[in-house]
Amino acid sequence: MWRSRHCRDTKVKPDHAEQFDQLLGKAVRVRVMDFDHASRDACVAANEAMLGSVDELVAVWDGEPSVDTGGTAGVVTEAGRRGVRVTVIWPEGATRG
């Protein structure tokens, strides 16, 4: 399914890999981007593709600005600019790990 296992292996922590694979297996539709590595450009392109195909964005986000392009803050901002409805989920007491 993955165009390159490198992306999965570099972006998914080893202790989350099994759960990631289970969730991916439940997906109705998976879009695989044409990138060999999970780079910032790949994230920006994936965000663009996603925003172009959704009516609503549900973001798990702490409300903090992104360090660079392609992060959650940028995609939330761009969704709002495009008029895409945005729902932010951040459980009370949650922290970045």
Rank of each mutant, 00 (worst) to 15 (best):
D9A: 15
D9K: 13
D9T: 09
D9H: 15
D9R: 14
T10V: 14
T10M: 11
P14S: 10
P14Y: 02
D15H: 06
D15S: 11
H16T: 03
A17G: 07
F20K: 08
F20N: 10
F20G: 05
D21I: 04
D21H: 12
D21Y: 08
L23T: 12
L24F: 13
G25S: 06
K26S: 12
R29H: 15
V32R: 15
V32K: 15
M33G: 10
M33S: 10
D34K: 10
D34Y: 08
D36K: 08
H37D: 11
A38G: 07
R40L: 05
R40M: 04
R40T: 13
C43V: 01
C43L: 02
C43I: 00
C43P: 01
A45S: 02
A45C: 07
N47Q: 01
E48C: 02
A49S: 13
A49F: 01
G52I: 02
G52S: 04
G52W: 03
V54F: 15
V54E: 10
D55L: 10
D55Y: 06
D55V: 14
V58T: 07
V58H: 09
A59H: 00
V60A: 09
V60S: 04
V60I: 13
W61L: 02
D62V: 01
G63V: 04
E64S: 11
P65E: 11
S66T: 02
S66Q: 03
S66W: 00
S66F: 02
V67S: 14
V67M: 10
D68N: 09
T69P: 04
G71K: 00
T72W: 01
A73I: 04
A73V: 07
A73T: 02
A73K: 01
